[in-house]
Design a protein around this nucleic acid. Structure first.
Length: 230
DNA sequence: GCGACAG
DNA sequence: ATCTTGTCGC
C-alpha cells in the first residue's frame, strides 16, 4: 500500500506508547557494572524513502574499536510523524540486531529515550522490544525545556518537562549544537549521561553512533577500517 | 488559531 | 531523514 494512502490510527499508537512506557525500567545492574560491548545505531533511507536502512556497530570497551557491524534493509512501511518515529524505524533495527553475532551489553540509539511526550522515544521502544539497556542520543530536541547551557565542552544541564527530569542537554563539542541525552531502558539517567561522556572522543557524536553513521553512509572512517581488515 | 515538531 | 555548492572557522 502506498505510504500516502495508508490510514494511521494515532490514538491507537498513542495507547500503545503509554502502555509500553509503563514498562520502561529506569535503573539496572548496568548502573554499577561496566559493559564490554557497546553498540551504536543509525537509520537512513534509500530510493527516495522507499527503503529503510538500519546499521548497528558493535564496539569493544574501553578501547572503542569496531568488532562487528550489521546492516538491514527493509521496505519502508510507515511515514515519519513527530512523536511516532519508532514505528517507522524499529523494524529495520530489530532485523539488524538479529543478524549480530555479538550481542552488546548497551546500545546507543539515535533518537530520544524517555525525553518524549509519552516517555517512549525510539531508544526506550527498542530497549523494551529487545530487553536490553539503551540510551537515547538525539541531535535535536523533541520536548522539554532547559536552562542556558554553558559553552564549555562537557557541560550539561537537565532537560525538564513539567517538573520531571527527562534527560540532559550536553555540550559534546566546542561550537557545535548540543546533544539531548535520555535513558532508554534499563539504565538510570545519570549513568546514561556518564556513559555518553565516556564514549566521546573529540567529536560531536559518541563513538558508537559515529561508527554506525560511517557504516551506513560509507564514510572514510569506515572505508579505511575495511582496508585495514585485509 | 498558531507555533513546535527525534529521524 | 534526503537533496546538494560553496564557504567559514579551527
Amino acid at each position: 500500500m502506498k505510504l500516502t494512502r495508508m490510514k494511521i490510527d494515532i490514538q491507537k499508537l498513542k495507547a500503545i506508547q503509554l502502555d509500553y512506557a509503563e514498562r520502561v525500567i529506569r535503573y539496572d545492574v548496568l548502573d554499577f557494572v561496566t559493559p564490554t560491548l557497546i553498540a551504536g545505531t543509525d537509520v537512513g533511507f534509500e530510493d527516495g524513502g522507499a527503503i529503510t536502512r538500519a546499521a548497528i556497530a558493535v564496539l569493544n570497551y574501553p578501547d572503542l574499536t569496531l568488532l562487528e557491524y550489521q546492516v538491514a534493509r527493509l521496505p519502508t512501511e510507515f511515514p515519519y510523524i513527530p512523536g511516532y518515529l519508532s514505528f517507522r524505524e524499529y523494524p529495520a533495527l530489530v532485523a539488524a540486531w538479529k543478524k549480530l553475532r555479538c550481542k552488546p551489553d548497551l546500545v546507543i540509539v539515535d533518537g530520544q529515550g524517555i525525553a518524549h511526550p509519552r516517555r517512549l522515544g525510539i531508544a526506550s521502544h527498542l530497549g523494551l522490544l529487545l530487553d536490553i539497556p539503551t540510551i537515547g542520543v538525539a541531535k535535536r530536541r523533541l520536548c522539554g525545556t532547559h536552562q542556558i547551557l554553558s559553552s564549555e565542552v562537557g557541560s550539561s544541564t537537565p532537560l525538564m518537562d513539567d517538573h520531571e527530569r527527562i534527560g540532559f542537554v550536553l555540550q559534546s563539542k566546542a561550537r557545535c549544537k548540543p546533544l539531548y541525552i535520555s535513558l532508554g531502558h534499563r539504565i538510570s539517567d545519570t549513568t546514561a549521561l556518564t556513559w555518553i561522556q565516556r564514549l566521546l572522543r573529540g567529536y560531536r557524536l559518541p563513538e558508537p553512533t559515529r561508527w554506525a553513521d560511517a557504516i551506513a553512509s560509507r564514510k572514510p572512517l569506515f572505508n579505511k577500517w575495511l582496508i585495514d581488515q585485509i
